[in-house]
Design a protein around this nucleic acid. Structure first.
Lengths: 122, 122
DNA sequence: CCGGATCCAGTACGATACTG
DNA sequence: CAGTATCGTACTGGATCCGG
């Protein structure tokens, strides 16, 4: 039944933990969510993921490309146009990551209340 | 239909992003996954989440407690015993975070292959 | 427009030593 | 046992400048 019993993220040296470290990340979650509706060019991605710096967006996309989650399409135009798109593998990650964003949006009021209560107690 | 259209993690100043930043994190994912089967004491959590340092485990648990995801149970014993448990709110996050770990384990071979291919091309 | 290169501040993390 | 305190280091992320 279990397909890969040999991999376990809770084991420090398991390679799957390196993948978890990449995907369990706020920038990754936002970028992959933003790419769920289709390919986007760099500048559109930058405005969609509000507040991300150019450097961080570049780094995030490069790592996602390296892990095979995002493909990069360069157009030989001037001014340059570069589009990013989820690969089939990347698409399998879209729902799980979008679920995290949804959770944050749906439960933020409870979380804020909990923070207030906690902070008031010191 | 949409319950909280006013919150959007893709907006830089939206408070829900502060919650996303906490939950979209490798340590959070591992700790919450580990707590899915029931309460655990600090030392057991430390060995279950292999490789985590005491400082990081303490910090992670404190932040999760602050956000109302984890509850802390102190027993007046000697030696001290402290157990951590997911709150009802924390339980709603267990499946989404566990899904990330599962994804990492199930797709790590594809990811490793992609990394090899990518790295070979420079 | 894309994004590489640099520099720098802030944070995350680990190791160690110590306390109730 | 479950922390707290401290420290050093490594990485994250922002700002800026520049080049294809």
């Amino acid at each position: 039944m279990t397909e890969h019993p040999e991999f376990n993220v809770l084991t420090a040296t398991c390679p799957s933990r390196t993948s978890l470290a990449r995907i369990a990340n706020k920038w990754t979650a936002m970028v992959v969510s933003a790419l769920g509706d289709g390919r986007l060019r760099f500048s559109d991605l930058r405005t969609t993921v509000d507040g991300i710096s150019g450097k961080v967006l570049t780094d995030t996309l490069r790592e996602l490309e390296r892990d095979g989650l995002v493909s990069r399409h360069v157009f030989a135009e001037v001014p340059p146009r570069v589009e990013y798109e989820l690969t089939p593998l990347g698409h399998t990650l879209h729902a799980p990551l979008r679920a995290l964003g949804d959770w944050a949006e749906q439960h933020i009021e409870e979380v804020l209340t909990a923070r207030e209560t906690f902070d008031k107690r010191r």
